[in-house]
Amino acid sequence: MIRVLVVDDSAFMRKMISDFLTEEKQIEVIGTARNGEEALKKIELLKPDVITLDIEMPVMNGTDTLRKIIEIYQLPVIMVSSQTQQGKECTINCLEIGAFDFITKPSGSISLDLYKIKEQLVERVIAAGRSTHQKAAAPTVIRPEPKPKPIAKPVWSQPKSGPNRHIVCIGTSTGGPRALQKVIPKLPKDLNAPVVVVQHMPEGFTASLADRLNHLSDIHVKEAKDGEAAINGCVYIAPGGKNISVIKNSGSLKIVLDNHDTPSRHKPSADYLFRSVGKLADYEKVAVIMTGMGSDGTAGLKDMLASGNVKTIAESEESCVVFGMPKAAVKAGLVHEIKHVEDIAASITSCVKKERV
């Protein structure tokens, strides 16, 4: 059973979140709190596995409360964000601090939005609770863990002929904003490739993510726009609510955004991006799959490998918040290298910096 503490200054939101969670057999709501100070006292008293935490609260706001929770208790926290610009920026900050994930408060049609929120909330709380239980079940004597091994490992060798053109694509979900902060700022500003990133996130939040990463990086980072050129030395973050693909256009690359649905139901979808990049026959591709729930990206990697000229990298279980997306790709035998998040940028750079002789 996953024990949850619900923290929100709104009585309506406390009841709504509590009702949604108690309908799930795996979850027990053990208490509620109206602000950060009250939350910290109840954490000490009730010992929850997971916390849902409002960002905008009186007495002690969500960001300050999150810092305390992570510093003292190391518990997974699901942030509850508003749709305001300030709320979006605070959410990105909280994810970088170490929040497990977030959901957004209802904004439009209440009945429709509440249904969407319920599904997202339950999914995230269960994933967070599993991560807590796995840590609790770990042995007290810490020993080095062997790196996970793929069932089968695709053979990769750098092409010896043809144009030396590259493109990098990255797919990530839960834990992605913090993981991207450990990868993107380490890429050189003269990287010999464009980088296209799919981060599962709602509309509006990806712009704040792109701005934050751009502030931290030498390489230019921006939210992608439909029809713009994908140029070397630039990172393009797929907008939330849109699928992104890359196509050839008069000898260069162009970004295309659309609203097509995908089997994974994600928008943006890593599978969708990877499949489009796989069609770039005269480009050498680097595909990276990082922390996240589910298996988005695995089908796309399979198609990319079938097309050739691809180097695939997965984030290691050790550094993942959720080893779902990388694990699916590794188990399918689609990964050449498994890297700790701190080493992914170096691996990308080594692939695209190599000049053939």
Results as ranks from 00 to 15, higher is better:
49 D>I: 03
49 D>F: 03
49 D>Y: 02
50 V>K: 10
50 V>Q: 08
51 I>Q: 00
53 L>G: 01
53 L>D: 02
54 D>L: 02
55 I>M: 09
55 I>Y: 10
56 E>F: 06
56 E>M: 07
56 E>V: 13
57 M>Y: 06
58 P>H: 07
59 V>C: 04
59 V>H: 09
59 V>K: 15
59 V>D: 07
60 M>I: 15
62 G>F: 03
63 T>E: 06
63 T>H: 03
64 D>R: 14
65 T>A: 08
65 T>W: 02
65 T>S: 04
66 L>C: 11
66 L>K: 14
67 R>N: 09
69 I>N: 09
70 I>D: 09
71 E>L: 07
72 I>H: 15
74 Q>R: 15
74 Q>M: 10
75 L>P: 06
76 P>W: 08
76 P>A: 12
76 P>F: 10
77 V>I: 12
77 V>R: 07
77 V>F: 09
79 M>G: 09
80 V>I: 14
80 V>N: 08
82 S>G: 15
83 Q>Y: 12
84 T>S: 02
85 Q>K: 12
86 Q>E: 11
86 Q>A: 13
86 Q>N: 14
86 Q>V: 12
87 G>S: 04
87 G>E: 00
87 G>Y: 00
89 E>A: 03
90 C>Q: 13
91 T>I: 09
92 I>H: 01
92 I>F: 04
92 I>D: 00
95 L>E: 05
96 E>R: 14
98 G>E: 07
98 G>Q: 01
99 A>K: 13
100 F>N: 10
100 F>M: 00
101 D>V: 02
103 I>N: 08
103 I>T: 13
104 T>E: 11
105 K>R: 12
108 G>D: 13
109 S>A: 11
109 S>H: 10
